[in-house]
């Protein structure tokens, strides 16, 4: 259910409404990033983050360390 696709935040476009431009494979779309902002991650710090985009919202941040860890596990299973 729920198509989601990774994209990278390249610019904060509207501080007040928490909107940012996200790049998906060279295609850009403005998305709402309210869900990934908190005290530990103020809006200004979000540029460069990879997020999962669903219906114009960033659903969650993607964690590079965890992704690598999954790939390491996969490598271990399949070696």
């Amino acid at each position: 259910m729920c198509l989601g696709i990774p994209g990278q935040i390249i610019e904060i476009t509207d501080l007040q409404n928490q909107l940012a431009m996200v790049d998906v494979s060279g295609v850009k779309r403005q998305v709402n990033i309210a869900c990934i902002i908190d005290d530990a991650h103020p809006i200004e710090s979000c540029v460069g983050d990879w997020v999962l985009v669903h219906v114009g919202f960033a659903l969650n941040r993607l964690d590079e360390e965890e992704a690598n860890e999954t790939l390491r596990i996969l490598a271990k299973i399949t070696q």
């Binding site: 908190d38 659903l59 969650n60 964690d63 590079e64 965890e66």
Partner: peptide
């Protein structure tokens, strides 16, 4: 949880609050 690059145990706080 296989999808650890996106999913954690407690979910997304802002989304759940909304």
């Amino acid at each position: 949880n296989q999808y650890t690059r996106l999913v954690n145990s407690v979910g997304n706080r802002v989304g759940l609050e909304a």
